[in-house]
Design a protein around this nucleic acid. Structure first.
Lengths: 199, 199
DNA sequence: TGATAAACGGAGCGTCGCTCCGTATATGCA
DNA sequence: TGCATATACGGAGCGACGCTCCGTTTATCA
């Protein structure tokens, strides 16, 4: 990857940020991630700036709106979760990698309660999020599924996006339900995938 | 109805408000309805108080939270919409009453964009709204359906809540779609109901 | 027709998202 | 390396928000 190349803009476009600007953008995103996780997405921007060690001006130059910051953090977390699919695939047998990633994904969805409210707020900053979500997660899961199919550990013909939605719904709805109810439901679904596999 | 009896509390519980208090509560609800319709549910409370000709203290004594006010207005509008079912049933033949009410209901849902965001906000003031919605609308529609079935104008066996959800979804999703797209979809559904009716 | 409980009203508090602009510094050229 | 300058920083401050507080007014009833 060329992400460490200071000449290379993170988003590919013609921007070229000063080194301190890049550092601060990163610090803000990381601080926002932590603060949102601790206090919810309604946490004040000031607190994020404080935690990032950055002034309000700096923060708002990069993220013109509160919603832009929320959306950026969300995209970052989607990227991180999707990227783990490859890491897990490299470190585990196909079926184990699949199960681990589904749990990871479920955990990701389960902690994003405030986000569903944001998505329905009508703020244009969130308009592209559903597509982003789908574009990143579908190939990630598709890769895991194909590998497991090729190893004859699960059956073929499962649509990745269907599975994402199913487990997503499971994970959102589950607030109560006792010890790892969602985990057991995931196991159940995976067993369903295994049924009819060749090996 | 006994609603005009000043001894009778609106909600049945043991409260007995002073006459001015009752007047003001009503003025606030009506003002809030208008302001929310004009400027969305995010409209400032001050504007509602101003329009109602009432001080902030008065408003907040009755509705301790912004969300409480929003919820109260919503319940009021649900009541009004549900009550129209009986009025329409008295004024029109069964099938016509049914169609008119479905359009009325569709219009109600269609103007409640901001509300779906509120429902997902997690504010406890909204917790009981889904149940309220269902408890009021299901019998209202059930009555219309039964009358039309008895007149052999539609077939039996249609679940009122299913129909509420179906038309609700139609009405929410439709922002674009051209002239009265939702209306045509309702007609389509009604034709489906008529299919197989005896008369 | 007072006495009094009940209700009113709006100035003001704390906080929010966001802006503005004087200051600091990373960068490219000599 | 030293300088000029575009670039970025930081935080006081603005307007608006939800909500509270409490001195004033009024409906109620003996």
């Amino acid at each position: 990857m060329a992400e460490d190349d200071p000449q290379q803009d993170e988003h590919g476009a013609g921007r070229r940020l000063r080194a301190d600007a890049r550092r601060n953008e990163d610090a803000v995103l990381e601080a926002a991630r932590v603060v949102f996780a601790e206090h919810g997405v309604d946490a004040p921007v000031r607190e994020i700036a404080l935690r990032a060690g950055v002034g309000m001006g700096t923060l708002y130059r990069r993220f013109p709106t509160r919603a832009d910051l929320v959306a950026a953090v969300f995209r970052r977390e989607v990227d991180a979760c999707a990227a783990e699919a490859q890491a897990l695939a490299a470190a585990h047998p196909p079926l184990a990698a699949l199960v681990r990633w589904l749990r990871r994904y479920s955990g990701f969805i389960g902690t994003k309660r405030g986000l569903s409210a944001a998505l329905h707020s009508g703020d244009p900053a969130f308009d592209t999020l559903p597509d982003y979500f789908r574009e990143r997660f579908t190939p990630a899961l598709a890769g895991l599924l194909e590998t497991a199919v090729a190893a004859r550990q699960i059956r073929a013909g499962v649509d990745p996006y269907d599975l994402l939605r199913a487990i997503g719904n499971l994970s959102v709805a589950t607030e109560s339900g006792g010890a790892d109810h969602t985990g057991r439901m995931i196991d159940l679904i995976v067993d369903g995938l295994r049924f009819g596999a060749d090996g």
